[in-house]
């Protein structure tokens, strides 16, 4: 397996002694141009990894914020072709920040798995998260994606017990995404004590970095989780920032700034997490 930008970035952060801030936004939300501006502004605001949502009409694991974000993007004409174009245009100006494409299987299957892997790689994407492809379906996309040079990031959840964990870890690469709650994105807040235990349980079984997401909204939560985890994923709070900046459903002069302002505070929380622990 080749080394991706994801591997490189997590290795660099590990040597710096801090966790990664993984920021989720939906490609094309609220429109293509604004979305591209947001994504371009994320690294300078403190995002270490960009998770870019591929909008889908039926995002089963998402709460209302990401559902609405997906709907806005689709209403503005976002398609898989345009999502890959967005990645390409971002990559022209940023050779280093990893991009993880996150979504559901049907738009990929519809695009064609082999064509998708090749085009995503060419556009400059580094990894995939496909919510509805469990390890039992690895022959569908996970194994071909790894062949094609893309990390396949696996989700582990509170229901992934010790018996099942090896199955989940078997073909995982890039990092492990620990889903901190039983539920959908952007709803309940995680119990940081339980998350800490779960992260340690996973880390005993893998050398891959473990990032934690679902329900992380604030700087304080980010700080608490980043003390142990190798990464903190924030999504719903960011797409809500997009939503709150809109007027009549359209982007305003505030849109990009309201996302990057929030990313800056979250990055501060992540950055201070271990300094706070050791100080």
């Amino acid at each position: 397996m080749i080394t991706t930008r994801i591997d490189t970035r997590f290795a660099a952060l590990r040597s710096e002694g801090r966790a990664a801030l993984v920021t989720f936004v939906t490609a094309g939300d609220p429109d293509f141009d604004t979305s591209l501006e947001i994504v371009k502004a994320l690294p300078a605001a403190g995002a270490d990894v960009i998770e870019l949502g591929m909008p889908f009409s039926d995002p089963m694991a998402e709460g209302p914020p990401v559902q609405a974000s997906s709907q806005r993007a689709l209403a503005a004409g976002q398609t898989m072709v345009r999502t890959l174009d967005l990645v390409r245009r971002f990559r022209e100006g940023d050779p280093d920040t990893p991009i993880v494409l996150m979504g559901y299987y049907n738009p990929i299957f519809s695009y064609g798995n082999d064509r998708f892997i090749a085009d995503a790689r060419d556009a400059g994407a580094d990894g995939l998260i496909v919510v509805d492809l469990p390890p039992e379906a690895d022959d569908e996309l996970c194994l071909p994606a790894r062949e094609g040079g893309l990390n396949f990031i696996r989700l582990a959840t509170p229901t992934t017990d010790d018996n099942r964990l090896p199955t989940v870890l078997a073909n995982a690469s890039g990092f492990i995404y620990y889903v901190s709650i039983l539920g959908i994105t952007g709803t309940a807040s995680p119990d940081t004590g339980a998350v800490q235990t779960a992260v340690q349980r996973i880390k005993r079984r893998t050398t891959l970095p473990v990032a934690v997401g679902f329900g992380v909204k604030t700087e304080d939560q980010a700080r608490a989780i980043a003390a142990d985890a190798d990464g903190v994923v924030v999504g719903s709070a960011l797409v809500n920032a997009v939503r709150d900046s809109l007027e009549d459903g359209r982007a305003t002069a505030r849109t990009v700034g309201s996302v990057t302002d929030l990313v800056r505070t979250l990055a501060r929380g992540v950055g201070e997490a271990r300094a706070g622990v050791t100080a």
């Binding site: 089963m60 469990p134 039992e136 099942r164």
Partner: peptide, 12 residues
């Protein structure tokens, strides 16, 4: 057919 579900549901 198959089982195309999120990991949380898979054990269930």
């Amino acid at each position: 057919g198959g089982r195309f579900v999120a990991e949380t549901l898979m054990p269930l």
